[in-house]
């Protein structure tokens, strides 16, 4: 590290306390992975609530899952998978110095994320209409189980928190697009795209688990 630091030209993106770009990149990525651990455990708490209540009331979860729209859930799963592909291609575009492709891929990711939220909106709207609201506001009468409201609480907490992460992701990727348009990212420096992509993949992974756990119970 030390002896080639003299040769390493001090580039604009390199913060003063790092020796070279490699160190900066690796440190940022490790930091992001550690942050993803906190995200996993953050959602983990909700999954624990889910597992505990499902183990107590398996019949409730079977009945209530029937009210969720499997098709919309599957469509959203596909949407997020494609968005994961597009953002990883955005990283690749930066690695091969293709600015135009960067912008296209980041733009498609945002479009797909918005699609996800629109589908989510229609799902939520139909639930709200039927009175399937979180416990305190619950009025639906189609499920004969006294804890039915609690299922919807868990459903809204899980998907709602996930939705908030999608919205944060849209914000982050928009910020990447602004920078990418200025030509900030190139093969020597694409750390922000890389770590936002890591975040976005995690959002995808959480949905990969939410889909069977919420929509595919029988």
């Amino acid at each position: 590290m030390a002896n080639n630091s003299g040769a390493a030209e001090k580039e604009a993106h390199l913060a003063h306390h790092f020796v070279d770009s490699e160190q900066q990149f690796e440190a940022s990525k490790l930091g992001m992975w550690v942050f993803l651990v906190t995200e996993i455990l953050f959602f983990g708490g909700l999954f624990v609530a889910y597992i505990v209540y499902r183990s107590w009331h398996p019949d409730l979860f079977e009945q209530a899952a029937m009210t969720l729209d499997t098709t919309l859930g599957a469509v959203n799963t596909g949407v997020l998978i494609v968005s994961s592909l597009t953002i990883v291609l955005a990283v690749r575009a930066a690695q091969i110095n293709d600015q135009r492709q960067q912008l296209i891929m980041l733009g498609s990711t945002i479009a797909l994320a918005i699609t996800f939220m629109v589908v989510k909106y229609f799902e939520y709207a139909s639930k709200f209409e039927a009175g399937m609201l979180p416990a305190g506001l619950y009025t639906y009468e189609g499920i004969e189980h006294e804890l039915a409201p609690v299922f919807y609480s868990i459903y809204y907490m899980l998907t709602g928190l996930h939705g908030i992460h999608v919205i944060i992701g849209i914000g982050l990727i928009s910020w990447l697009m602004v920078n990418a348009a200025k030509g900030t990212y190139h093969s020597g420096y694409f750390t922000p795209i890389e770590i936002v992509a890591l975040y976005w993949h995690l959002v995808d992974i959480i949905w990969i688990f939410l889909f069977p756990l919420l929509y595919l119970i029988e």
Partner: peptide, 10 residues
């Protein structure tokens, strides 16, 4: 909102 995960009344 009274989500009823921790509150025994719900």
């Amino acid at each position: 909102l009274g989500i009823g995960i921790f509150d025994p009344a719900l």
